[in-house]
Simulated scan of single mutants.
Amino acid sequence: MTLLQFFLDIGLGLLLGALGGLFGIGGGLLAIPALGLLFGLDQQLAQGTALVMVVPNVLLALRRYHQRNRIDWRHALLLGFSSFCLAWVGAGIAVGLDAEAMRRGFVAFLLALAAWNLTQVYLRAGAGSPVLNRPWPWLGMLGSGSGLVGGLFGVGGAVVATPVLTLAFGVSQVVAQGLALALAAPSTAVALATYGIHGQVDWATGIPLAIGGLLSIGWGVKLAHALPQPLLRGLFSLFLLLCAALLGVKA
């Protein structure tokens, strides 16, 4: 890798980190299609490399969200533990699947999530509550399902948990994103370890992306708390559609 390429990767990481902070997903969702298009990585290698950036970004973003909206650590630990247990399973399945089938499945997954989130914009007129409207043990089921999907697609499960938390648990978008980051923290670490063991990580590309992401993720978190909640939810839906479209370009 040349010095120029190193700084270009940091620049890309800056953009991905800011978006990851804004939407509470660590930047991996956009990094995966970007790595496929710009670097020619196949689906598994793109997912594993994106996780190099996602893991530290998620931890920093979680701290920033907690500073602005105190996260109940009882909820965070339940989400994190249940997600951790199933992430091993999802990541173990992913590394053995056909890369093209994984790409098609990921596109379908993103389109379904975008449709669900756009529906929420119309179903939920209010900004949401800072507290759960369901008993907190239900979070264990959410963590398990999100961890499985996060390990399978290398996105940490936050992208799944956020819309479920707003729709089924009635919390605001920023509270949901903070809790989703708590869920994603252990499962992303598990997924990165699994991809790394199977040789599905390009560390030379992933490390400068992580540096850039750490420098910018706080900007995204600040913007997320400044935007109206319905607007933030709508932007999140459009972001999912963009990621699906970029990944679909390789079809």
Rank of each mutant, 00 (worst) to 15 (best):
A180N: 06
I10M: 09
N57S: 15
A180Q: 08
L192N: 04
V190W: 02
A204H: 09
L152E: 03
L192P: 04
A184S: 14
L14R: 03
L111T: 10
Y195E: 02
F109G: 03
Q47I: 03
F236C: 06
L4E: 14
G140Y: 03
G36Y: 01
L86I: 07
A184I: 06
W136E: 07
A115G: 14
L139S: 02
G199A: 08
W73N: 10
L77T: 13
L123V: 13
A224Q: 06
L113G: 02
V174D: 03
L111R: 06
V95N: 05
G13H: 03
A168E: 09
V175R: 05
A61Q: 05
W116K: 10
L14H: 03
L247G: 00
L110C: 09
L78V: 13
A127T: 12
M141P: 02
V107S: 09
F153S: 05
L148Y: 00
V174Q: 08
A184L: 08
G178R: 02
F236T: 06
Q44T: 00
H198L: 08
G156P: 04
A94K: 00
F106G: 00
L247V: 03
R124G: 01
G80L: 12
S144L: 15
G154T: 05
V121Q: 13
V121H: 04
R103A: 02
P208F: 06
G11H: 11
V58K: 08
N57W: 06
A101T: 07
F81W: 13
G151H: 01
A31V: 12
G212K: 00
L97P: 06
V171E: 02
W116S: 08
L15N: 05
L148G: 01
I197M: 14
L241F: 13
R63F: 13
L227R: 03
G28R: 00
G128R: 01
